[in-house]
């Protein structure tokens, strides 16, 4: 067992040395692989950054509850306590009818508007910030809130929420699609690279088979070659996306500041980086395995 590990360690080291000794031979493949990885990764980071930002957004869809004119202190307190306990509600604020009127005066530059009115026509209102972005859940929540006692209507800007949610969802699906498509591309690229290597080393493989090399022995260097290539491509893709994040962030920050928003593209977390490295090396090894299974069978020495 120890011996087996030693042999594998030897192959792994030799494969790495080979890549490092002829970096230009592997460079093209490496470049293709890292770009194939960097594309979905950047999209993933963009979408998850937008999602993060949307979560913090001050303009997250808000539901406004307008109370009946006849609502009294006790009714307001009842609604208020319901809102406090509700699991789907992030926060809420209360805008009393007096405050609403004075806001209106200020905004419209009509001081003394209230003087002309005998009664304040504006209702008391609660502005509710839900926890969810999902349009269907928002609608349910709206219905539920409008059914509270002494609540006249519950309004929210559904179109806006739907659009934001739709965009995030589309970005997420696009990420998965791109990820899957380029994952397949990664398998195909290593498949082809290993196929070329096998054909170039046909004589050697033939002789090795003649003197008793099992397929596992012949396959081993190709598998390790692919593993290193996947790993290096994963690291390179990480480098590319980090560079993208670093160069794009100042511009994004400046732009977002115009709207008083703090938006930032985030980089890969250490766990995400590990997952990316594991996936890219496994996919590369899958390509190598498929190529060697196919082509080693065709090399039958006579």
């Amino acid at each position: 067992m120890k011996h087996f590990l030693y042999l594998n360690w030897q192959s792994a080291r030799q494969a790495l040395v080979k890549i490092l000794r002829q970096p230009f031979g592997s460079l093209l493949t490496l470049l293709m692989l890292s770009i194939a990885l960097a594309l979905p990764l950047s999209l993933y980071l963009t979408v998850s950054s937008i999602q993060e930002w949307a979560g913090r957004l001050t303009a997250t869809p808000q539901i406004t509850l307008f109370m009946e004119q006849s609502a009294e202190e006790a009714d307001l307190a009842a609604v208020s306590s319901t809102l406090t306990k509700h699991p789907r509600i992030q926060s809420y604020s209360f805008v009393g009818k007096k405050q609403a009127l004075s806001d209106l005066e200020k905004r419209n530059g009509l001081p003394g508007l209230s003087d002309g009115l005998t009664d304040n026509p504006l209702p008391d209102a609660f502005v509710v910030t839900p926890k969810t972005l999902e349009p269907h859940e928002l609608e349910m929540l709206q219905k539920e809130l409008s059914g509270l006692p002494m609540v006249e209507t519950a309004q929210f800007d559904a179109r806006w929420a739907k659009r934001l949610y739709g965009m995030v969802e589309m970005g997420r699906q696009l990420t998965w699609f791109l990820g899957a498509a380029l994952g397949i591309a990664l398998v195909l690229v290593t498949h082809n690279a290993v196929r070329m290597q096998i054909l170039a080393r046909r004589d050697e493989i033939e002789v090795a088979k003649l003197i008793g090399a099992p397929d596992s022995f012949i396959r081993r260097p190709f598998m390790y070659h692919a593993m290193w290539q996947g790993l290096l491509a994963g690291l390179a893709a990480w480098g590319l996306t980090s560079w993208l994040v670093m160069t794009a962030n100042p511009a994004i920050h400046e732009f977002a500041q115009l709207y008083n928003e703090a938006v930032q593209l985030r980089g890969l977390s250490p766990v995400e980086l590990l997952v990316v490295l594991a996936i890219s090396s496994l996919l590369a090894m899958l390509g190598a395995r498929l190529a060697s299974d196919h082509h080693l069978r065709q090399i039958q020495p006579r």
Binding site: L210, G212, P214, F217
Partner: peptide, 9 residues
């Protein structure tokens, strides 16, 4: 292959 490993040719 394992048979061949015991043969020299």
């Amino acid at each position: 292959p394992y048979v061949r490993q015991h043969i020299g040719m």
